[in-house]
Simulated scan of single mutants.
Amino acid sequence: MTRVLYELSGIEEGLLFSPFCWRVRYALAHKGLEVETRPWRFTEKEALAFARYDKVPVLVDDDEVITDSYEIMRYLDRRYPEAPLLGEGMAETRGHFFKHYAERALAPAMIRIIIMDLLNAIHPDDRSYFRESREKRFGCTLEELHSPSRGASQLTAALEPLRGQLMESKFLDGQAPAGADYLVFGNFMWARCASGADLVSDSDPVHAWLERMLDLHGGLGRNARRIIDIEGG
């Protein structure tokens, strides 16, 4: 069986920082599925022409081509039903909430903190594209978007729901991790790999959860290449 994951890389092929790709990496590990990874960069659109898509992650599983991190997680549950990620019915709908929470509450706060680090972590050939596309999206320059103090304040407020849950259980999905944890944790891997910024204090209940998530699946997150590991990063 051939299973391939196309995922975003930075200034080195081993620097993999996309929050959406990290969701899928953890989902595959959760299922115990091996995968060959193919580094991809923002400007390599033609490499994904076969998928009729211009973003990663893209998962190729035999003859199946699946795009979008959440759809990949749903596909994995259908194709490999053991060790569910999202479940079905109301459980799957709950997973959709965590997807939106990560993208609409956490990401806007985090990007104000890490945006300039992120620009430096991106391959030089991609930086013009990244700047132009993101400044168009946000309606301001990256320098204007960059506001660590404002981002930290936003993030502190956005993490309140996690704190409540993690004071009652070890993981967002209860006593063991599953889809909700991976949907949210992908954003923290984004920041961890692309930036040296500390987003959560050691005394925060979220910090203990982050430590547990980093150690999952043989230290998948903890052993990941980071910008601070790269000379000059």
Score class of each variant (00 low, 15 high):
P81T: 03
R192W: 15
H30E: 11
T2D: 13
S69L: 10
A176W: 01
G32S: 04
F171S: 13
L8V: 10
A191M: 12
E88T: 04
E12Q: 11
T156V: 03
A180G: 02
A191D: 14
T2F: 09
C21H: 00
K31F: 08
A83R: 14
E132G: 06
C21Y: 01
E88M: 05
L118W: 14
E103I: 00
M189A: 10
L85D: 08
K99R: 11
L162N: 09
R23K: 15
V184G: 06
N223W: 03
A49K: 00
D202Q: 13
Y70R: 03
T93C: 12
W209N: 01
H146M: 03
Y75V: 11
R137Y: 14
E144V: 14
A208V: 02
G89C: 00
A152G: 13
F42M: 11
T2H: 15
A208Q: 11
L8D: 05
S133R: 12
A49T: 02
L142Q: 02
S69D: 08
V58A: 00
R134Q: 14
A176N: 02
N187W: 15
D62R: 04
A194M: 09
R112P: 05
D229E: 09
V35I: 11
E92R: 12
F42V: 00
L59D: 09
K45L: 04
D125E: 12
Y129Q: 03
L16T: 12
N120W: 04
H207R: 14
R94T: 07
R74Y: 01
A152W: 04
S201H: 12
E231N: 01
N120C: 04
H30I: 05
L159P: 14
H217I: 12
A102D: 02
A109F: 08
D125K: 04
R212I: 14
D61Q: 06
I11T: 08
F20V: 01
E46Q: 13
V35C: 13
G139Q: 04
L155R: 12
R41N: 05
R212W: 14
Q154P: 02
I114Q: 02
R112M: 10
E64W: 11
L106P: 10
G233C: 06
S9F: 06
Y129T: 05
T2E: 13
N120D: 09
T43P: 00
A29P: 03
G32Q: 07
R225P: 04
H96W: 04
K170N: 10
D229T: 00
K45F: 01
N187G: 10
T43R: 06
A105W: 05
D77G: 13
F17I: 00
A83G: 05
R94D: 08
R25D: 03
R225G: 01
V184R: 08
V206F: 14
A51V: 06
A91R: 13
G218E: 12
Y182S: 04
A102F: 03
A121Q: 05
I230G: 04
H100L: 15
G10I: 01
M1V: 07
R74E: 15
L85R: 14
Q154K: 11
M90H: 07
Y26W: 07
T141P: 06
M110W: 02
Y26M: 15
S149K: 08
R41K: 06
D229R: 00
S149G: 02
L145C: 09
M73V: 10
E46W: 03
L86S: 01
N187M: 15
I115Q: 06
A178E: 07
R226M: 09
E82M: 01
E64T: 00
Y80E: 06
R74Q: 14
C21Q: 02
V35W: 07
T67E: 07
E143K: 08
R134D: 04
K31Y: 11
